[in-house]
Write a protein that binds this DNA or RNA. Sequence first.
DNA 1: CTCCGATTCGTACTTAGTACGAGACGCTAC
DNA 2: GTAGCGTCTCGTACTAAGTACGAATCGGAG
Lengths: 215, 215
Amino acid sequence: MAGPRVRLSRERVLRAALEIADTHGLSSLTIRSLAEALGVKPMSVYYHVANKEEILDGIVDLVFSELYVPTVGADWESEIRRRAHSARQVLKAHPWAIPLLESRTTPGEATLRHHDAVLGTLRAGGFSRELTAHAYALIDAFVYGFAVQEASLPFEGPDSVGEVAEPIMALMAEGAYPHMVDMAESYYTQPGYDFADEFEFGLTLILDGLAKAAR
Amino acid sequence: MAGPRVRLSRERVLRAALEIADTHGLSSLTIRSLAEALGVKPMSVYYHVANKEEILDGIVDLVFSELYVPTVGADWESEIRRRAHSARQVLKAHPWAIPLLESRTTPGEATLRHHDAVLGTLRAGGFSRELTAHAYALIDAFVYGFAVQEASLPFEGPDSVGEVAEPIMALMAEGAYPHMVDMAESYYTQPGYDFADEFEFGLTLILDGLAKAAR
DNA sequence: CTCCGATTCGTACTTAGTACGAGACGCTAC
DNA sequence: GTAGCGTCTCGTACTAAGTACGAATCGGAG
């Protein structure tokens, strides 16, 4: 059953944890399931990480490491745009990571490197420190907030509307939420609607606004 | 020891749960702690809620019910601005709720009513359905994302910088994150800096952009 | 081959969610 | 008042999961 006995390592532990979260969801990531995936006994994991918190911090940083890192010095607008799209992509691929990003207050290396690059790109793009701070907060709030919305959308496509719980539909039908119903019926459920497009609109509006402010 | 024996109810259960989360943090909210706060035995709680998930859904909706609900028909910009500030305030008061807002996919009544009012305000303000969808996504992403940032900021004021873990500071000192260090030293830690101001900047930029798009 | 630090694991305690069914309460009809 | 019956509360106990503690094992250096 066992292979040629591979040594454990913090790296392998985190990789395996990431994989479990990706394939079976965050709630399936337990020390025991992790140990099993590694072909090892639970307590062995604890030699490489202090506790589960550290594992969570670790996989969040792994997710961060997947983000496109903007090039300091290149055209700020396209770099920031690219990294925003990248972030959306990555968070969509690891939706379980979204609730974690906040609770983790111990940023990892990839996380710090990433933020540093964003700040650098803006500064090199001619943004004052003040405007950089504004821009940084605004862009990240949007990107992150958008990912959250996308992950928790009750209906995210023309097909999945039916999945909304019945009591809600009942209330909706009763006319309790007229505007939601109107939007749902006349817009969100129309063929061709894609929530992802909202991202482009918002990002463009923000970048345009920042560009104007930077002048 | 017991008072005049007050009946339990879903309402009382949720109120008590909210209070525990507010005062001792979300992790202290367990069925047992909740039962004790209610002067009751753990399993009694389960007559009023199906499981802990339902409790979480419930307190999230309670938090939503604290938000300012915009008046449909009134000036959209000031209404939306007011509700944005309200949201920030509320989320700041219940930071534990932030990670929850996403994971909960079963919106409560207050949540739905709130969203309906926002949509209605925009529509009544002359926004097309398309622009309403854009605006709604953009504004909420920003408001929510901002709250997240605020809650997880490594340093959120001139004083608390020292709280950042040492390894990070060490790396920073080594010059690994020059732009972060620069911003931290020359801007974030300057007296008078308040992260909250970033909210105003972002919100105004967004509302201005939307106003222009609405014309 | 022996010794030693680096790893791995066995055992077991603790906290937490909650299934199941019995018991207590209090109101209603006789 | 009292029997009867929903409504509500709780006693018991099982399961899952994190992890403390120290023993067992492994693999390379001398």
